[in-house]
Structure formats: C-alpha cells, structure tokens
Computed example of a mutant assay.
Amino acid sequence: MVKLAPIFLMASLMGGCGMFGKTTDTVSGWFGSGKAKGPQPATLPEIRESASISRVWSSTTSEAGRYVFTPVVDGEAVFVAGESGKVARLNLQNGTEVWRLDAGKSLSAGVGAGAGLVLVGSRKGELIALDAATGARRWEVILSSEVTGAPVVEGGKIIVRTGDGRIVGLNPDDGSRQWLYVRQLPALSLQGTEGLAAGDGSVYAGFSGGKLTAISASNGVQFWESSVSIPRGATELERVTDVVGKPVLDGKRVCAVTYQGRVACFDRNKGTLIWARETSSSVGLGMDDQYVYVTDARDAVTAYDKESGRAAWRQDKLANRRLTAPLPLGKYVVTADFEGYVHVLSREDGSFVTRSRADGGEARARPVDIGPGFAVQTAKGVVTAFKLN
C-alpha cells in the first residue's frame, strides 16, 4: 500500500471494511499520477554541476507492484525485498548477494531489521522473521490485516502496523504478541506509506485525521497525542488530512506532515507544538541538524528551519515529477522521481548540485543513507547505490 503514486483511498465502514472503488484503485486522479490526465511533468532543468555522482553497485530484487519497498541497512548488510516475496541480503560495500530467498508470500511491507532478524509483511497479514545472517526462517505470525510500512525494532520489541489501524508489539524470540494499540479509522482516509519512527523507548505513528501519537515500545501505552493538522472543508474528500510517510525525530522533537494540512514539529516528551506551517504532501519529509525538508503535493522541496519553522528555501523546478520524500545527506538533499532520475540539491539554498539516474524506472521510496552514499530502490525492484564525490 503506498504512495504509488500509490497512496490508496479507502472507505472503511464501522463493523467491517468497504472499499471506495476496487482494492487496486489508486488516487492517481486526485494526486496527478498514473494514467489520469493532469499537469505535465517539468522538463529536467539544465544544471551546472558542483559535485560529481557515481554508481557504486546495482542489484535486482522483485518488482514493487502497487506497494513501496525500502532497503534497510544493518551493520555491513543491506536488506531488500519486493512484492513477489523475494528477500535478499547484500554486501553494503559492493552489492554482492550474501543470500536470497523466496518468502512464499505476496509481500506488502518491508524491510525491517534488528535483533538479528529481517522482517517483511504480507498483504494477508503475515509477518515473517528471517535470520539476518543466513536467511533461515525463524518464525511467522498472522496479524489482523495487511502489514503496512516496514516493521521497527525498539525497546526489545518488534513493532508492526496493520491496515486496520492497529499497532502491535511482538516478542523477537517467537513473534508472540506482547501488546496491542488500536485506533478507529475514519470513513475515508489515505492509505499510504504508514511508517513508524522509533527511539529512546518510544514509537511515533501518524494517523488519519492529522493525528500524531507517541506510544511506549515496551507496553503500547499512549504517552500523548497531538494534531499535526485539523480536517477542514465541506466534503469528506476535502476533509482528508492524514499524516503521510514516516515521522522524523531528533533528541528534542518529532515532526510529521499531512496531506491537505500542515508540517509540524512537537516536543518528543510532552507532545506540545513547537511550530507548524501550512503545506500538503503525499510522500513525507526528512530532517537533519538544521532543517526539516518537505516534498509537497506540487513536487516542490522546501526547507524549514527546524527551530522556528521559517521557510529557508524552496526548489520548485521539478513540478509534477512525482518526487520521493527527501533524504538529507550531509551538505546535500537527495530526492528521486517517476523516471528514476536522482536529484541532488544543496542543503544551503536548494540549488541543483548534480543528477543521475537509477535503473528500473519510477522511484517511489525515499532514497536510503547507506553511509557513505545512498541507495535508491525503483518500482521494478532495481537497487542502485550512489556515491557523491
């Protein structure tokens, strides 16, 4: 489920689940992606390169289908997966395959890693834990519905999110349930890359209606809940304002962005609002030690001062190119687009630094920091590692 251009529009009914259209329908028409006619993507601007970019390695897993899959780095390994069930461990330095297997399931989410495990989830709610070193299957459990977003490991628990509004904490040893957090979903919501952010024993999750929640990783108790944005408008579609992507955090704050709403930062401990600015995003945000970066619904990237929320710069020359969420990377900010182009911007003013292209067409997932460099996984399942010089 994801930002496929896949963010899917769902209508869930109390006492059951009814779909707004077919399960394979996307909101391409709403977001200007897919086959629906809409604004034409901007022509790639000419740039004066101030840095060079090179490919380091490339590897192929299975295609993403209608989902978004993001590689995860754990030590010297990169773990990748795709919809058909292929999961692989790659060498971080050169991309060589350490192991590859077929999970035997149609996957919807991944990859998570930690506690010596590699974690992937299926559209039927199966969570599969593999041994990180060998790929051997350690255990498998069935959850309440489709697994959405990559699982995280925090506070000695595996934390998993499902499409029916539940977050569950599992024992890493056998997958047994330790706690359950349940939230009622509204009649109409976006179902996108419903990521979880975790740190210092807390898990942060965004929900429909613009809500951001902090819960305990150890027992699932809610610490606080705050509003990133508040639904507005006369119709249900106008009132859709869901948190999209994965919240970002540092030692002081946690920040999130909504569709048709705001980007906002909150105190991590208390949930009190630090600042908020009007915007709309369908993919998410990134953060470093100076700025919060948002890719908005028009595919402009804006840098907000993370202390004050003041907009420092905005790069709008990639309009309608269906950009990914931005990855801050030292002096640079990296995003990728629907043709697989990778755009490197200056952190200081948003100007273009350099550009390259990943194999495999459309990039949906945010590029991943593999230190040094970054990796991009495209919809066709090609993972390409790049190095900035």
Rank of each mutant, 00 (worst) to 15 (best):
M1A: 12
F8I: 12
M10P: 00
A11V: 07
S33D: 11
A42H: 11
T43H: 07
R55M: 12
R55E: 15
S59V: 09
R66M: 12
V73W: 00
R89F: 02
Q93T: 13
V98S: 12
S106W: 07
L119T: 01
G121M: 05
L143H: 02
S144V: 04
T148W: 00
R161H: 13
I167P: 01
V168Q: 13
G169W: 03
S176R: 14
Y181D: 07
P186N: 05
S189M: 08
G192E: 02
E194C: 09
G206D: 04
S208R: 04
I215V: 14
S216A: 13
Q222P: 05
G233I: 09
G233K: 03
T235L: 10
T235P: 08
V240I: 15
T241K: 03
G245P: 08
K252Q: 14
A264L: 09
G284P: 05
R298A: 10
R298C: 00
R298T: 13
A303V: 06
Q315D: 06
D316S: 15
L318N: 00
A319N: 10
N320R: 11
R322G: 00
L323N: 06
T324I: 08
A336L: 01
F338Y: 10
E339N: 07
Y341M: 09
V344N: 02
G350E: 00
S356G: 13
P367Q: 09
V368S: 06
V368L: 14
